[in-house]
C-alpha cells in the first residue's frame, strides 16, 4: 500500500508532473460512477438527430436532387449524406459534452476546483473529461452504423473504419471546445456558440458538395474543421483514401494537440490564480 505522498513523490522528476499526474482514469472512473445514477433518456436519445436528418433529407430531398457525383462516382443522395451526418453527429456530440457539460462543472458545481485541490493536474482533468466524452461519441457512431447498414447505405466493410475516425474527430472538437468554454461566464454567451457553429455545419458540405460555391467561399470552408471532418469520414465511407484523407487526419491530430495544450493552460490559469 503506497500513501498519497509516495505516489506523488514517485512522479516528482517526470516532465510535466505539475500538470499531469498520470491519472486521467480517475476522472473517467468518476464519470462512470455518475453515469450509473444519471438519467438515461437524454443519453439514449442522442443518436436520433442524425437519423432524422437522414430520413428527412434522404427521402424528401432525394426526389428533388437525384444522384450526386463524388470521387467514388455518382451516388444516390441518401448515400451521399450518410457519412456527412455521421461526422456531424460526432462533432455535435463532442461539442455538447465539452461546452454545456463543462460549463456547468466550471461555473455551477465547482467540480474541477475540488479535483484540482488534490495532486491531480489540469491535464488529468481535461484528458479524463474528453476521453469520457469520446465513449459517448463512439456509441453514437456505432448506433448510426447499425441503423444505416440495414438501409443499404454502408457500401463496404471498410466503412467501419469511419467509427474510429469519428472518435478522432470528436476528440479534436472536444479538446478545443473545452478551452473555449472556459472563457464563457453566462448562459447567454453560451448561446452564441450555437450561432457560430450553425453556419460551420451548414456550409461544410454535409448536405451537398461545396463545389457549388464560388471559389473564395470554397477556400474559406476548406479551412474549417467541420469540412475536414466530413471529408475524412466520406473518404473512408466510400473507400477513396488518398493524400487529402491524410491531410484531414493530420488536421485533427494538430487540433487535438493544440486543444489539449490550450485547455490545460486555461484550467491552470483559472484554478491557480
Amino acid at each position: 500500500m503506497r500513501s498519497a505522498v509516495e505516489i506523488a513523490d514517485a512522479r516528482a522528476d517526470k516532465p510535466g508532473h505539475q500538470i499531469y499526474a498520470g491519472r486521467a482514469r480517475a476522472i473517467i472512473e468518476r464519470a462512470s460512477i455518475a453515469l450509473r445514477s444519471s438519467t438515461w433518456v437524454p443519453i439514449a436519445t442522442g443518436f436520433i438527430e442524425p437519423v432524422l436528418y437522414l430520413l428527412a433529407f434522404g427521402y424528401g430531398m432525394g426526389a428533388l436532387i437525384g444522384d450526386i457525383s463524388t470521387s467514388a462516382g455518382a451516388v444516390d443522395y441518401t448515400v451521399f449524406i450518410a457519412p456527412g451526418l455521421l461526422a456531424t453527429s460526432a462533432m455535435n456530440g463532442a461539442i455538447y459534452d465539452s461546452t454545456w457539460n463543462v460549463f456547468f462543472k466550471l461555473n455551477e458545481s465547482k467540480l474541477y476546483q475540488g479535483m484540482l485541490a488534490t495532486p491531480l493536474g489540469p491535464l488529468d482533468v481535461a484528458l479524463g473529461e474528453i476521453i469520457w466524452a469520446l465513449f459517448r461519441g463512439l456509441s453514437y457512431s456505432i448506433a448510426f452504423m447499425l441503423i444505416t447498414a440495414p438501409l443499404g447505405l454502408v457500401p463496404s466493410w471498410s466503412a467501419l473504419l469511419a467509427i474510429p475516425a469519428a472518435v478522432l474527430i470528436a476528440f479534436g472538437f472536444a479538446s478545443f471546445g473545452m478551452a473555449i468554454t472556459s472563457y464563457f461566464k453566462t448562459y447567454q454567451q453560451m448561446g452564441l456558440i450555437n450561432i457560430v457553429l450553425l453556419p460551420m455545419f451548414l456550409f461544410s458540405g454535409s448536405l451537398y458538395p461545396i463545389s457549388v460555391y464560388p471559389d473564395w467561399l470554397e477556400f474559406t470552408i476548406k479551412l474549417l474543421p467541420t469540412w475536414h471532418g466530413i471529408e475524412l469520414i466520406r473518404d473512408i465511407w466510400f473507400g477513396v483514401i488518398d493524400f487529402s484523407s491524410f491531410s484531414h487526419l493530420s488536421y485533427f491530430l494538430v487540433m487535438i494537440v493544440l486543444g489539449l495544450f490550450f485547455t490545460t493552460r486555461r484550467l491552470r490559469d483559472l484554478f491557480m490564480r
Binding site: A4, V5, D9, R11, A12, H17, Q18, P119, L120, G121
Partner: peptide
C-alpha cells in the same frame, strides 16, 4: 514547483 507533491500532503 512541486504542486502535486505538496497537495499530496494536504487535506483541504
Amino acid at each position: 514547483e512541486h504542486g502535486p507533491q505538496v497537495r499530496a500532503h494536504l487535506g483541504v
